[in-house]
Simulated assay, not measured.
Amino acid sequence: MPRIKLHVAQWGYKEILLSLRLFITGRSILGNYQGKLSHFLSKAYDLNHATFLNSARAGIYFSLLAMKEKKIDANEVIIPQYICQSVIDIIESAGLKVVKAKVGEDLLLDISSVEASICKQTLAVLMVHMYGKIADIDTLSSLCKKRSVFLIDDAAQTAGEYHEGKTLGTFGDSGVISFSQSKTITTGVKASGGILLCNNKNLQPRLTQLTSNLEHSVSRLPAFVHFVMYFLLQGVWRKLDYYISRISTKLKNKRKDYYSPITNISNLDAAIALLQYKKLTENKKNIINSLVYYKKLIGEFKSISAPQLCLENSFLTRLVLRSHVISPDNLATYLNQRGIITRFAYQSGSKPYNGSPDSGLLEIPLVGVSIDEINFIASTIVEAEKELA
């Protein structure tokens, strides 16, 4: 029986060798790769006001602090109802209230819901390009400008993508790009790097103050080992990593917090990000090839759709299915028993389909799969529909 991994990073031997070299030479934390990455992004993507942090989440946090000082009476942030829990956590840690707007079938913000949610207390709207699919930038930008609300361009999952000649992340008053797992550019597990982009000259001075004296991370080795075992090797190593984490948590009597404290990006993460940016075109081409083949087979499914499947979306790292009849839990069990590794979606997304776009979702392999493996995945899903529906 084949074992088809759900890859969350497009890593090869170059990333491994570069990481080992930086650890051996003692340059995993400090070095000159942040400067090299900054220079490359300025030349290749015209990103000239970039601040490199240990997560995109940190960029959202600092953006909200600066925005709050400009609109003292506002305390609400509008986000998509389908989103990573860490985003909700960071908004609340900034002392602000989360307001969830509806999403459409493609899991992107529903414009009418956003418009209805804006009020006097609204500080900002978080525009997310979910799973790499571009949001309705023009309409949201116009709406926020009209209603005097800040816009954060969350391009966490779309590093290097353009819209009308501009890089995603540069359309809001501020923007963020992530290098965490399951992103187009992946340097490691959580807190492995991100970019804060400021596009509002009135916010820039305060953001510079907030980010100018950040500390450097203490060590990247534990997170690197965890990433390699859990996300790259998987299999028995994933189970071993799980038990090591459980034992470590029990001994320390507290849960590991990957996000705190906020620091500058490490030299290791900047180095891997630079390497991955340089091979981004090649990686996108491989994703498109897989999407083309999936698209040919998706018509065979009777009660399962792929809301993010379009050939323009070259920034997916895993394919999202929406199962209208079979629960995500049952479908995942069926596929896993046949060697296909899956992953549950954010929060309510993993619940059985209830008519809402953010339900009945399950992530299946996309990056690093062969044509034969895609055929096997598709035929197994067809069998699941016959047996479980």
Rank of each mutant, 00 (worst) to 15 (best):
87 V>L: 14
14 K>T: 05
85 Q>K: 15
42 S>H: 06
87 V>G: 01
34 Q>T: 15
49 H>V: 07
35 G>Q: 15
74 A>W: 01
46 D>P: 00
91 I>C: 01
74 A>R: 14
27 R>P: 02
45 Y>T: 02
66 A>H: 02
72 I>P: 05
60 I>H: 05
32 N>H: 11
60 I>R: 06
87 V>Q: 10
71 K>Q: 13
13 Y>P: 04
9 A>F: 05
53 L>P: 14
35 G>C: 08
54 N>Y: 06
63 S>W: 04
56 A>E: 15
51 T>K: 08
70 K>V: 09
48 N>G: 08
68 K>H: 11
77 V>F: 07
50 A>H: 10
49 H>K: 12
54 N>F: 00
59 G>P: 06
93 S>K: 15
92 E>T: 12
84 C>N: 14
11 W>C: 03
93 S>H: 12
66 A>G: 02
89 D>C: 00
78 I>Y: 09
67 M>C: 03
10 Q>N: 14
65 L>E: 10
52 F>G: 04
51 T>E: 02
49 H>N: 13
84 C>Y: 11
60 I>D: 05
39 H>N: 13
51 T>P: 00
73 D>W: 08
31 G>Y: 12
92 E>H: 06
87 V>R: 10
56 A>G: 15
40 F>V: 06
65 L>K: 14
60 I>W: 04
54 N>T: 05
35 G>H: 11
90 I>G: 03
40 F>G: 09
40 F>N: 07
55 S>C: 00
21 R>C: 06
17 L>P: 01
26 G>N: 00
79 I>Y: 03
76 E>W: 08
52 F>P: 11
52 F>I: 05
62 F>H: 12
14 K>S: 12
43 K>E: 15
64 L>Y: 09
44 A>Y: 04
24 I>T: 13
84 C>W: 07
13 Y>N: 09
45 Y>K: 08
74 A>H: 06
40 F>L: 09
57 R>H: 03
36 K>Y: 01
74 A>L: 01
47 L>R: 11
81 Q>P: 00
79 I>R: 05
23 F>Y: 09
17 L>V: 09
43 K>D: 11
69 E>D: 10
44 A>C: 01
15 E>G: 01
63 S>D: 01
74 A>T: 03
70 K>N: 11
88 I>A: 01
